[in-house]
Simulated assay, not measured.
Amino acid sequence: MKDINKSDNNLNHKTTSISIITVCYNSEATIERTIKSVLLQDYTPIEYIIIDGNSKDGTLEIIKKYRKNITKVISEPDKGIYDAMNKGIELASGEIIGILNSDDIYTSDTIISEIVGQFVKRDIQLLYGNITFFKNNPNKAIRTWVTKPYYEGFFEHGEVAPHPSLFVKKEVYNKIGTYQSDFKITSDYEFMLRALRINNYKSYHFNKFIVNMQMGGESTKSIKNIMQGNKEITISWKINGISPPIYFWPLRIYKKIKQYFS
Rank of each mutant, 00 (worst) to 15 (best):
T220R: 15
L166W: 08
Y82Q: 04
E114H: 12
N130M: 00
A195T: 02
I46M: 09
Y173Q: 04
Y128P: 03
F134Y: 11
L11F: 14
R197K: 13
V160W: 12
I246H: 14
S203Y: 01
D52W: 12
S19V: 07
I18A: 10
R122C: 06
N26H: 09
Y204R: 03
Q125G: 13
H13E: 12
K64Q: 15
S108G: 08
E61P: 15
N54S: 12
S236T: 13
V73N: 07
P45S: 10
T16W: 15
I74H: 08
P244W: 11
V23R: 10
T132G: 14
D8I: 09
W145Q: 02
N5H: 10
G129E: 07
N9G: 03
I112K: 05
I105R: 05
Y82S: 07
I253P: 01
P77V: 04
K64M: 06
D52T: 06
Q259K: 15
A161I: 03
T44M: 10
G94D: 10
L251H: 11
I131F: 09
G117R: 08
I4Y: 06
H157S: 14
E159Q: 13
E156G: 03
F134V: 01
I226G: 01
D8K: 00
R143M: 05
K72V: 11
E114I: 05
I124Q: 13
V116M: 06
Q125R: 11
M192C: 12
N26W: 07
I226P: 03
K56M: 13
D78P: 03
L40G: 14
N54D: 14
K256S: 14
L60P: 08
T132V: 11
K121M: 05
N137F: 00
G177W: 01
E152W: 06
D52V: 10
R194N: 14
K148T: 06
T178A: 12
K36R: 11
E232L: 02
A84H: 08
I96H: 01
S108K: 05
G217W: 03
R194G: 01
P244L: 15
P149H: 00
I97S: 00
I142Y: 00
E156S: 15
E47T: 06
K56C: 10
N54Q: 08
D8Y: 09
I50R: 06
Y66R: 07
G94H: 02
V116I: 15
S219I: 12
